[in-house]
Design a protein around this nucleic acid. Structure first.
Length: 414
RNA sequence: CGGGGAGUGGCGCAGCUUGGUAGCGCGCGUCGUUUGGGACGAUGAGGUCGCAGGUUCGAAUCCUGUCUCCCCGACCA
């Protein structure tokens, strides 16, 4: 992509109404545009990062044999009344009547919808298990949207639902999803903690939240500094400074952002909605369910909270999700096009800053936009037919032969 | 939904107390000089001051209502 033709319009100053690091960065760097409180549009840069996150999730979901679907956003009141959630969720439900006076809601989550589909299709133990997921916009009328994309009224989420014959099968799959989630967050370079949280109204078993520690987080996490013990403050029976109940470590306390959660729904929805199957003995049973979510736009925001250096206006995106691999600057004017073409042909994602602006502007945008690599051509480097190569998470840069630049990228990927 | 703060060119702000029909920086257009860290000169375009009503000869400025945004709280993937 050439900067001069792109829709990238960075700003020097942060928007006055931004309420968090992620919001001010994402708006300033023109990744997103705020439409109203808690509602953001993804612009080309933001959408690019979003899609890369989405694809990582999709890959890992497909790897565990779950099948992608896309459900409807509009859902009828009757469905929600089956589980009592029309009332229960009324404060956050975007509910309205259409022109024919039919009562509808914009779906805040999809347990009801998918359960209604599954009960129509699944009748025998031979049909189980099933794993279905979707990536879609959720609508929740938050009483107070805040923290940029961390708590919006409209947000993108991956939600997976599993359907089993019995709890044993659910438990097995639950652990598989847990591993898949760890893989996803590792690829996103997000250091997550698996945090025990309330399992809800059914049983005293815990659900698990995937939390990244960050000052902007709204949750409070108690965790062991030595082992993997971690609990959400709602259920924590430990205090900061306590001894860890699992090892000889100490308990610490921090803010966390919940980027994912996994939950054993068991028969909560199947029971109230009549989603049943016939087992080997001809007996009718409730389908056992699990649900597993990842907030994708929330991940996008969390990455900014983690990797944006506010004092230096510097961002470095994780390699797998960066909007571009490399930011190319040509201060001399003769070789830029050639290098750009070479990178494009080699399949390297490059943003070529071909604007007629001062060097300083280009360097500061390179810092702001956050590509993991930076290449600079100048009279100085060209004296020896070199180009400056900088890994942006490091201080030093070095000069490499222009002709070998593609090889450098290939080698660095290893 | 309770308490507090704020809405003035695309962005960030000043003006409002002490009414006289709008100003600065950035950005944007044109011309020229610049180019290793947000360059400089010249010139130009762009707002009727969130919205509605009221007071007044006259309202960005005073009064009332309303909408929106932000903060604190309740709530929350």
């Amino acid at each position: 992509m050439r900067y001069s033709k792109s829709f990238i319009k960075t700003q020097k100053e942060t928007p006055s109404d931004s309420d968090s690091i992620n919001a001010s960065y994402l708006e300033r760097a023109s990744f997103v545009e705020k439409q109203m409180a808690g509602v953001y549009a993804l612009l080309p840069l933001g959408f690019k990062v979003y899609q890369k996150i989405e694809n990582i999730i999709r890959e890992e979901m497909n790897t565990i044999d779950s099948q992608e679907i896309l459900m409807n956003v509009l859902s009828p009141k009757e469905l929600w009344e089956e589980t009592g959630r029309w009332q229960e969720m009324k404060d956050i439900l975007y509910a309205f009547k259409d022109a024919r006076d039919k009562e509808l809601a914009l779906s805040p989550t999809h347990e009801e919808q998918l359960t209604s589909i599954v009960r129509h299709k699944i009748h025998s133990y031979k049909d189980l298990p099933q794993y279905l997921y979707q990536i879609q916009t959720k609508f929740r009328n938050e009483p107070r949207a805040k923290s940029g994309l961390l708590r919006g009224r409209e947000f993108l989420m991956k939600d997976l639902y599993s359907f089993h014959q019995d709890e044993e099968d659910l438990n097995q799959f639950y652990e598989i999803v847990k591993k898949a989630y760890l893989k996803i967050f590792a690829r996103l370079e997000m250091p997550v903690k698996i945090v025990e949280a309330s399992g809800g109204p059914f049983g005293k078993e815990y659900s698990h939240e995937f939390q990244v520690l960050a000052p902007a987080g709204e949750d409070t996490v108690f965790y062991c500094t030595k082992c993997d013990f971690a609990q959400n403050k709602e259920i924590a029976k430990v205090e900061e400074g306590d001894n860890c109940p699992k090892c000889d470590g100490k308990i610490a306390k921090d803010n966390g952002i919940e980027v994912g959660n996994i939950f054993k729904l068991k028969t909560k929805y199947s029971k109230s909605m009549g989603a049943v199957f016939v087992d080997e003995n001809g007996q009718e049973k409730d389908i056992v369910m699990g649900s597993y979510g990842i907030g994708i736009t929330r991940c996008l925001a969390s990455l900014v909270e983690m990797f944006f250096d506010v004092s230096k206006n510097k961002m470095v995106w994780p390699k797998e999700v960066a909007p571009f691999d490399v930011y190319l600057i040509d201060l001399e004017g003769s070789q830029g096009e050639k290098v750009y073409d070479g990178l494009v042909k080699a399949g390297i994602g490059v943003l070529f800053d071909d604007r007629e602006v001062s060097a300083g502007v280009k360097f500061s945008d390179a810092d702001l936009l956050g590509a993991p690599y930076r290449l600079v051509l100048s009279a100085k480097t060209l004296e020896d037919k070199k180009i400056e190569f900088k890994k942006r998470d490091q201080e030093e840069s070095n000069l490499v032969d222009i002709d070998k630049i593609i090889d450098i990228f290939d080698n660095d990927e290893k």
